[in-house]
Design a protein around this nucleic acid. Structure first.
Lengths: 141, 141
DNA sequence: GGTGAAAAGTTCTACGC
DNA sequence: GCGTAGAACTTTTCACC
């Protein structure tokens, strides 16, 4: 259902999700309309879920980025699932297996902001915080 | 340096990074050229680092997505930093503080693939695997 | 910082192969 | 599935405010 040409298109969109169909077509020797047709198909199939931006949180005033692992208290899972994404600090949230039930990535202004955020989470479960030092960048070769 | 209009543009790009400048402009009552100018500025400042796609890994044949926390062995940090992104399974990698040094998100075909991947990591450090069950979706309201 | 206008480029649709 | 062609739209640049 997804062939090598689709994979090439996906790889180009991974590098720049704003690339035009014409530009992608030039790189893989395909007409803009064919590229468009394939991207449409990938969207319709749900292979491409969305187009996102990657932000430099530090430049937006969020000096702290952390992963938080949450061990949810009995009976609190339902409420955390519906509420976790209402916190503006939360960038993405996942259900996971193991001793922790929820994994979130969070952007915060400073230590105090982190403390306040953790205080809020403590109503739902027991959090473990992993401070992000830096993203390990892919060498665009 | 970044005002409310920039924030509005960023929020619209978060929802759809392929939105045209014209479309964004219509939503926030600004001309396409002004939107373009501001986006350009955000890119030049480094606030917008890149435009990405979010993929459904299951539909691409990767039935397993995991976070792996790695406690790196003495002397192995440098090599893992330069090699972690050469594994095609790795979606993103971060340096973190605490008992683990590296946090990676990985997409794998199946259990056997995960086992082989973990075997490769064992040369660098001691891995802890957290299986991702699902992403907790934001309700687009 | 913003607009508007013109040229270049892209997208979209329809149709043929 | 792919390509072409034309209309509609978008991007880009630039002169002007």
């Amino acid at each position: 259902m997804i062939n090598e040409i689709d994979t090439e298109i996906i790889n180009l969109l991974k590098e720049n999700a704003r690339a035009s169909f014409a530009e992608i077509g030039r790189k893989i020797a395909l007409s803009p309309s064919s590229v468009r047709e394939r991207v449409q198909k990938l969207e319709d199939l749900g292979v491409i879920k969305s187009y996102n931006i990657q932000l430099n949180q530090a430049l937006l005033g969020n000096g702290l980025e952390v992963f938080i692992l949450l061990k949810i208290f009995d009976g609190k899972l339902k409420s955390i699932l519906s509420e976790i994404n209402t916190f503006p600090e939360v960038q993405e949230a996942f259900r996971i297996t193991g001793p922790y039930n929820i994994h979130v990535r969070v952007a915060l202004r400073d230590q105090l902001h982190l403390q306040r955020f953790i205080d809020k989470l403590i109503g739902y479960g027991s959090p473990t915080t992993l401070l992000i030092l830096s993203e390990i960048e892919k060498n665009k070769s």
